[in-house]
Design a protein around this nucleic acid. Structure first.
Lengths: 190, 190
DNA sequence: CTTTTCCTTCAAAACTTTCTGAAACACACC
DNA sequence: GGTGTGTTTCAGAAAGTTTTGAAGGAAAAG
């Protein structure tokens, strides 16, 4: 079967430069956030392209190997922010990302909560459990002070992240636009 | 002059294990957040210790080199979350971290906003500027569609992060405990 | 059944980040 | 000045992460 025409990647200088700038920006931000640069660039390219893209197009535009594209797409799909689609009559897979920024943000938040916040809370409890109850009166005063300050600070952190967790949950099942409504409400009441 | 007695690091099994657990936890979390593990461990150790510690004690407890301690302390001090203190009659420097979780959180937020969010917003504007105004009517329909979807998505991201930025600002100059008040308010109104 | 096309995997290579230890520095004290 | 004590710096080593490219697999087309 004949290969489809495809390649909707723009050639106009201005838009091409703008796209490169955005891809570069998103890649750099990813670094700050502990995410692999190439993975973020693939995501960026999918975000600014209306049509689904093939692995081939991603390789071409980002100048990276097929294997790299394949593995990073797998991770993006596992994160839930990229979808694989296919067209009848075309053997290639096509990839897209969630168009709606709010929906994308929710997916990312939900995943990070699951991977980071939930384990953090579990392990903070473990930290407190390990410290044991009250220090024995047989312990030296220095020991007892150390115990007390440890428990005090770890418990404060736990309370803090618990509050954070509740905030996450509220934001996660709220409507698009809630973030800006939240800002307005907070403006008014804090 | 005689060396001070010092070393308040606890020897009791339970509390020592709990401290190690917490230091390990904080180090792992740091990785997820794009922060150097050792830096986070130094911070963790200072957090769970009431007394100021010397570089020597940090080396000893974390089993890391003097140079490593020195450089990471410099970074922590630049971040504004660790303070160097000195005692009259002792040539060594002592280090402490902010005791209050909320205050610490604010310092970190403020710094991350300055380093990440502000540049992100500036560069997103640049991405839009580069794309130029309306596409020329001389451009092909495909080009015009590409331009349109690019501008639409980047503008949405900019709006989203702008809202985020405002939320940051509100949280930054609010009182301790505001986070949990915010949760309650949001509960009520969203 | 063979070829073609596309996707995935994985070991090794390339690259990046972090850490060490030795040297340089700083400064109080004699 | 010199000596003792503590800190900083930085080049190179070690560790960790990412990328490549070749091999293997799967499924449609011939």
């Amino acid at each position: 079967m004949a290969v489809m025409p495809d390649i909707p990647v723009p050639k106009t200088p201005s838009i091409a430069a703008a796209r490169r700038e955005f891809i570069d920006l998103w890649g750099q931000m990813a670094n700050h956030w502990g995410i692999n640069r190439t993975m973020a660039q693939i995501h960026a390219l999918l975000m600014v392209t209306a049509e689904p893209l093939t692995a081939e197009q991603l390789m071409e535009e980002l100048q990276i190997s097929r294997g790299n594209v394949s593995m990073n797409l797998r991770d993006l799909i596992n994160w839930g922010i990229v979808r694989r689609t296919s067209t009848p009559g075309d053997r290639r897979d096509f990839f897209t990302t969630e168009a709606d920024v709010w929906a994308m943000f929710q997916v990312i938040m939900r995943e990070r909560k699951k991977r980071e916040l939930d384990p953090l809370l579990t392990r903070l409890e473990e930290c407190l459990r390990l410290a044991g109850k009250k220090p024995e009166s047989s312990d030296s005063p220095a020991e007892r002070a150390a115990h007390e300050s440890y428990v005090k600070r770890v418990a404060e952190l736990r309370d803090f992240f618990n509050t954070f967790d509740r905030l996450f949950l509220r934001v996660l099942d709220s409507q698009p636009g809630s973030l800006s409504r939240a800002v307005k409400i907070i403006d008014k009441f804090l």
